[in-house]
């Protein structure tokens, strides 16, 4: 990386394997949800993480905030290693500085808790706020996310999906975090609401100097919010780099296929054939490139040797033998 500033989040060789019971009742199968992933996020930056469902993007988000432990690899937040020997202690040191915004605006708020209690939950857990400070902070947070201050004494079910997502963002902001993992925060919303939430997240970033890991499956949404983009396929990051490079000159065949699949309002334009096949099984994966079986350019080398990320431009990494 060319960035000299110390990264807020650094991930190296991250692996997460979920054991899955096999149907035949034999030894448990290994589901490689995340396979040797590495990236950095620097202060004030947004990294967009795109991929199909099941590609492991949400697992990365959860690994990054310590919700689930990794099988192997390192996660460093604010210079503290939250994996390994003293991981738990280091995680509690930095806990106040990171937060999470969830995908499902219905499941992410406790239906039995009033909105003000939902928002103030991180404050209550962290402790050490007076009743007055708590009440003031709730009003402040509601205003920040653009909700009327009267919302506090109502219950989540009285709000629409977009409003609930705002409540979820207010909760994430309660402790003035520096880094927020947004796990598909807009994919459950309709398009007009998506734009509002994306704009809100951009405003908040500017106002508070936040860094985001923005997880999404929608390339257009990621393009509008992330300056750097990482593309995931079957548990691996196949390509990452500056937004301009990824969208204008994608190097990995998967990224190319993904961008080609975006419909464009141009009747003259010839569409390339779309990608055949399906995302491969990540249960006990084969050696070689995960994309090889769908790749139009695949060679024997691709099928036998796993490509490692290589730098092909300024901060532009591609995991492909052919790029």
């Amino acid at each position: 990386m060319n960035n000299l500033a110390a990264p807020i989040a650094g991930v190296r060789d991250l692996v997460k394997i979920f054991p899955v019971k096999s149907d035949s009742g034999g030894a448990p199968l290994q589901l490689h949800a995340v396979n040797q992933v590495g990236f950095d996020i620097s202060a004030g930056e947004t990294l967009g993480l795109v991929g199909e469902s099941g590609s492991g993007k949400s697992t990365i988000g959860r690994l990054l905030v310590g919700l689930i432990p990794p099988t192997r690899g390192h996660v460093e937040l604010f210079g503290e290693a939250i994996t390994g020997k003293d991981g738990a202690r280091h995680l509690s040191n930095v806990r106040r500085r990171l937060q999470f915004v969830f995908q499902d605006p219905y499941g992410s708020l406790n239906p039995r808790m009033r909105v003000d209690d939902c928002i103030a939950e991180p404050l209550d857990i962290a402790g050490s706020v007076s009743r007055k400070e708590r009440a003031d902070r709730i009003i402040e947070l509601l205003e920040i996310v653009g909700l009327p201050r009267s919302c506090g004494d109502r219950y989540p079910h009285e709000f629409s999906g977009g409003q609930r997502q705002r409540i979820g963002i207010a909760r994430a902001l309660a402790l003035r975090p520096e880094f927020i993992v947004c796990d598909e925060p807009v994919s459950a919303l309709d398009v007009s609401m998506q734009a509002q939430i994306v704009n809100l997240l951009l405003d908040l970033q500017e106002k508070f100097g936040l860094s985001y890991l923005f997880i999404a499956h929608d390339l257009a949404v990621v393009r509008s919010i992330a300056r750097r983009v990482a593309v995931m396929y079957a548990g691996s990051i196949v390509e990452q780099g500056p937004r301009g490079d990824i969208y204008r000159a994608p190097k990995h065949p998967y990224t190319q296929a993904l961008l080609d699949a975006v419909p464009r309002p141009d009747p003259e334009r010839q569409r390339k054939p779309t990608l055949g096949g399906e995302i491969p099984s990540i249960l006990n994966p084969l050696p070689g490139c995960a994309f090889a079986m769908r790749c139009p350019l695949a060679t024997d080398r691709c099928r036998n040797e796993r490509p490692m990320p290589r730098e092909v431009g300024s901060a532009h990494l591609v995991a492909c033998h052919l790029a």
Partner: peptide
Amino acid sequence: EAARVAGA
């Protein structure tokens, strides 16, 4: 999960 991220 939201509560756990906050350290509940």
